[in-house]
Every structure is written in C-alpha cells, then in structure tokens.
C-alpha cells in the first residue's frame, strides 16, 4: 500500500513538473529556442504572486489572474527587445543571452527579497486532503495535476484550432514561407513567449503554495522541465506530461528508499530514457 501511495504522489508531482515544462516545450516547438532562464522566470512569477498576496491581501487565485497578464507583457517584451535579436542558425547567442538573464534574475531577486525561503500563503487548502480510493491525497497536488491537464488541453485547442495556432504551426514549420503568407514571425514569437509566461505563472502558483522557494531554486526547476520535455519527445505536449510523470514517480520512489536519492533517481531515469529512446517516448518534431 505504501508503494501505491508513493506512486500516486509521484504522478501528482509529475503534474507540477509538466507545468514547469509546458512553457519550455511551447517556445522550443515554435522558435527552436531553449530559454535557460525558464526556471528563474517561474521563481520570478512566484515572487510576483507573493507580493500581490501579501502586499494587497489578495487571494492567490485572484493574484494569478493579475500576474498572468503582467507576465505575458514581460515575455512579449523580452522576446521583442532581446531574444528576437539573437535568434538564428547559430544556437550560441540565444543560449548565452538566456544564461546571462538567468544569473541576472537570480541576483536581482536575491537583492530584492534576500535569500530567505518564502511561501505563498493559501490558508484554504494548506493541508487539505481527500480520499482517492485506497490512498489519501492532498488537494493541492490534485489541483496541480488537474491544472496541468487543463493547460495542455487549452494549449492544444489554441495550437490546432485557432488562427493564432495556425500561425504558430506555420512559423514553426518554415518562418520564411510563413512570412510570405503575411505572418510576421517576430510578432508570432513574441506572442508565443507571452503565452509561455502565462503558463509559467500558473506553474509559479503551485510552486509557491506547495513548498518554500528562494531565489536560487530556478535552475533546478529548469532541469526538471528539460528532462520532462526530452523524455516526452520534442513537440508533443501530452508527451511532456508523461515525461513529467516519469520524473515525478522516479523522484518519489528514490526518496522512499533514501531521502538523499530523490533528485538522483530523477536524473538516472532521464539518462535511462536517453539511452533507450534518444528521441523521447512520443517524438513529433524532427530536430
């Protein structure tokens, strides 16, 4: 029974990792850009929500509704002002720019909020749990997983069923031809990064309410997100969810054996998948 419980907790943790990874997956799918500051963006959004909750006394849910458009604007600006200038066949400039951004965000947050670990207060749900068949699960983890599924359903709807999604797919396939058809790739990229930042805001809510966070934890979140994307296979959002679940289950199983092995078990699961299926479990994009 304890094993079943561990696995269920792992699957639910996978929902959180999938939320971390979805924005990364979306941006990579459309513009082949890997944002090394993605994890730090999540932490930044968590601090934004924290300020709205503690400063204005808002409920966390309302704070997300305010934070999401702000993060959209930030992502849009970042793409237009900085990232669009460095996109190109050479992968080095975007990597180095986002790496610099990662260091800059971490230290700006450190300066603004100190190294103390913080938590977004959410009195309604803290510690609440429900019985799910033979196991008892926390309400927050279940909500996290449900949100991950909802986000992926909505994004897939947008990508495969709207004019915006059509321009995403067209730009992803061939930006030059898309440009000839009246699409402006640079604008499309800016909107895509904006949307990714809204997903990041949702991820930040759960990151910040479920556990403590501090300015230095971004890079580790980037690694989990990256592992989920690679395990799932590039270009498939459902694959990303599956990847997140695999990392989550591996981590909780590792932690059940020895608390020191939690992160290590996740890394080893990732390397194992890379060994057996180098292109991930459900690859769609060819890169």
């Amino acid at each position: 029974m304890i094993w079943l419980d561990t696995i269920v907790q792992g699957i639910l943790l996978g929902g959180l990792y999938a939320l971390f990874a979805t924005g990364l997956s979306l941006v990579f799918g459309i513009m082949r850009l890997v944002n090394l500051a993605h994890g730090d963006m999540i932490v930044l959004a968590a601090y934004l929500i924290l300020v709205l909750v503690t400063g204005l006394g808002l409920s966390p849910w309302l704070a997300v509704l305010i934070a999401a458009p702000l993060m959209f604007a930030l992502g849009w600006l970042l793409q237009r002002v900085v990232l669009n200038r460095v996109l190109g066949p050479d992968i080095l400039p975007p990597l180095l720019v986002t790496f610099g951004l990662s260091i800059a965000i971490q230290n700006a947050l450190l300066e603004g909020f100190s190294a103390d670990s913080r938590r977004i207060p959410n009195p309604d749900l803290e510690g609440a749990s429900v019985a799910l068949g033979p196991v008892t699960v926390g309400v927050m983890p279940v909500l996290t997983f449900a949100s991950a599924v909802l986000v992926i359903v909505i994004l897939n709807r947008v990508i495969y069923g709207t004019p915006l999604g059509r321009s995403f797919r067209a730009t992803s396939d061939d930006p030059v031809t898309a440009g000839l058809m009246g699409i402006e790739p640079m604008k499309v990229f800016a909107v895509a990064t904006g949307i990714a930042m809204m997903v990041v805001t949702v991820a930040a809510l759960y990151l910040g309410t479920r556990a403590n966070f501090d300015p230095a934890i971004g890079p580790a979140r980037l690694i989990y997100a990256f592992q989920a994307v690679i395990i799932g296979g590039l270009g498939s959002l459902w694959g990303t969810l599956a990847g997140g679940v695999i990392i989550g289950v591996a981590q909780t199983l590792g932690a059940a054996v020895n608390p020191e092995w939690q992160i290590l078990a996740g890394h080893l699961a990732f390397l194992l998948v890379l060994l057996v299926r180098p292109r991930g479990l459900f690859p769609r994009a060819r890169d």
């Binding site: 460095v86 180095l96 790496f99 610099g100 260091i103 800059a104 965000i105 230290n107 450190l110 300066e111």
Partner: peptide
C-alpha cells in the same frame, strides 16, 4: 549580488 547581476547583464549586452 549586484556584481553578479552586472555580470549577467553585461554578457547579454555584449552578445547583442
């Protein structure tokens, strides 16, 4: 941390 912040931003500016 201001030092690292400056270093990160300098790298971005240099790259662009």
């Amino acid at each position: 941390s201001w030092y690292l912040l400056t270093l990160g931003l300098t790298a971005i500016v240099a790259m662009i």
